[in-house]
Each structure stands twice: as structure tokens, then as C-alpha cells.
Design a protein around this nucleic acid. Structure first.
Lengths: 151, 151
DNA sequence: CTTGACCTTCCCATGATGGGAAGGTCCACA
DNA sequence: TGTGGACCTTCCCATCATGGGAAGGTCAAG
């Protein structure tokens, strides 16, 4: 199986497969005489694992950890659960932060006429005048999570 | 006022102030004889506007739009509201996507013993076996939003 | 033998931010 | 007057995960 077929079968782009190999997330594949990478079902399975982890919002680093745990027969399910729960915490923090933004924005939008006149409470708020809702969003790192359609 | 003081007064790092100037978000500042940028209250006000917009999750591009509307006396509040509502939609999509992830992850974590044994439904799910919850997250772009403490 | 669909590597861009080097400037204090 | 430290300047690099595209090799079918 060439990289194109592995890509097709796993849902991971050829570009990304090469990248994952480059950063050591997956082992360098064997090559045919023409220098083409060769993949088997085993490799596709790994790629799908990665794909699924990414779809659940795990970073590549977390994904690597999970991948190692998956391949480690002496793992404890507690170790896996820890990774998952840390990630859940991450997501929940980011969700809360964004919900705070939405709340403020909805309030401002509600107060805004949305008509032909220039007067606008949204801009007033941004400009620091009329601090309608002094929202207190926590200092949270709202990072990646770029997921495409999930598997 | 030097860049350090403007930074202090606006909450925008000196690094970012220079960057905003470079990308044309703010006008190039005047310089003193020693080539230092000089800032006045006007500029600090603009920087705080940007800071606040960023805290509400607007991208720099959206922030630029808002900034222009703010400075345009012929704007309509409808135009501003449109930008805000598009952003609310964005945020809500991302929130929904992340909530889907959390839901799946919580279910998996719940099913996971979290003990010393290797058996783990989380890994089983990632590996494609036992597709416990075939979550259907929509293909949403869950991008930036990196906000620090809000103003 | 040509055409087109693959594959390869290499470099660049994204978005917003920080880190840090190398060098100039300014002020306060001894 | 000198000097140290706190500023400022520009320039380059890193992040994170991904895509775009160029330049060139390979292969299979027509």
C-alpha cells in the first residue's frame, strides 16, 4: 500500500502521514526500490488511532502518550484515564471561557439597535465607555482543537 | 510616552504593539530623535480597544474591522452587530464541538476502571474497537481564542 | 513514447504570541 | 566623567498542526 492508499484508508492526509513520521509519532516506514513508503494494515490502524484521538481534541503530544500506552501491554488503565481527564479539564476550561465571551457578546448585541444609526453599545464597550458587563473570563489557554468530521 | 509605558497603560505587550503596527492594524507611530516610538492617550485608547476585542475572542482581522467601524462616524450599528453575531456563531459552533468531545470522553472515562489493569475502553475506542459512542461532531473550525485575563 | 497519476523532498504560509540576540540610548548616581 | 542598568531598536526563531506548491523521479496504461 502506498501513502495515498494509506491516507485514503485512514483519513489522514499524505502530508500529515509524512509529518507524523518526521516528528517521530509513527515509525519510519519501509520503502520500496523506488523510494516509495509502504504501508500495511497495522500502520493504517495506528493512523486511524491518531485520527480518532485528534478528533477528540487531543494534541499530538497527548496522542503520542496514548499511542504508547496503547502499545504498552503493561499499561494501567489509570494512566490512560488520567490523560483523558486532564484533557476533559482543558476542554471544559476553554468552553467556559468561550461561554463567557458569548454571554457578554449576546448581551451587547441585544443592547445594540442593529439599525442604520451609528450609535452602538458594542463599540462603546470595546472602547471602554459604558462597561456594560465587566466580564471576568479566567486566564485560560484556549488552544488548538481543529477537528474535521469525526470518524 | 514610550512603548513600555503604552504597554503598561494598555495591557498590550510591547512586542504585540510593534507587531500590530507592522501588520497595519495601528498606524506607525511618530518617533523621537532617538528612534523611539512615541504614544499618546489616543493611541493607548486604541490599544485598549484592541485588547478588549481580543479578550472577547475576535480575531485580529475582525478587530481591524471593528476598529474601522469605531473610527467611522458614518457606520451603522447594524454593521457592528453583524460582526458580533458572526463571531457569536463561531464561538457557539466551537463550543458545541468541544462539548461533543467532552461528552464522549466523559462517557469513555466513566467506563474506564482507572485501575492497575491494562484493559481500557478509552484505548479500545481510539483503536476503533468497541465504538462505544459514535460521536458526530460537525466539521467546525475550532481556531484561535487564546485570551488572557480579560480587561 | 507520451501522458497523467502517483511518489519524493524542500520551502513557505497560517495566527498570535513569546524568546532572545545584538546593538543603540538615556538617566541617575558615584 | 564614567558606568551600570533599564530602556529602546531591529531581526530571527519557535510555537501548533496543517496545507500549498514547486521541482523532480517513477510507474502504468494507452
Amino acid at each position: 500500500m502506498n501513502i495515498g492508499q494509506a491516507s485514503e484508508a485512514s483519513g489522514v492526509s499524505a502530508k500529515m502521514i509524512r509529518y507524523y513520521e518526521e516528528i517521530g509519532l509513527i515509525r519510519p516506514m519501509g520503502r520500496t526500490g523506488n523510494n516509495y513508503r509502504v504501508y500495511g494494515d497495522e500502520e493504517v490502524h495506528v493512523l486511524r488511532f491518531i485520527k480518532r484521538a485528534r478528533n477528540l481534541g487531543f494534541s499530538l503530544e497527548e496522542t503520542e502518550t496514548l499511542l504508547k500506552l496503547w502499545q504498552d501491554k503493561d499499561r494501567t488503565s489509570a494512566a490512560v484515564k488520567d490523560v483523558a481527564q486532564a484533557h476533559i479539564g482543558d476542554l471544559e476550561r476553554r468552553i467556559a471561557e468561550m461561554q463567557g465571551m458569548v454571554k457578554t457578546l449576546k448581551h451587547l448585541a441585544h443592547c445594540c439597535g442593529g439599525d442604520h444609526r451609528p450609535n452602538c453599545p458594542i463599540l462603546d464597550d470595546l472602547a471602554g465607555e459604558a462597561p456594560a458587563v465587566p466580564v471576568k473570563t479566567a486566564p485560560v489557554k484556549t488552544g488548538p482543537v481543529k477537528t474535521g468530521t469525526s470518524a
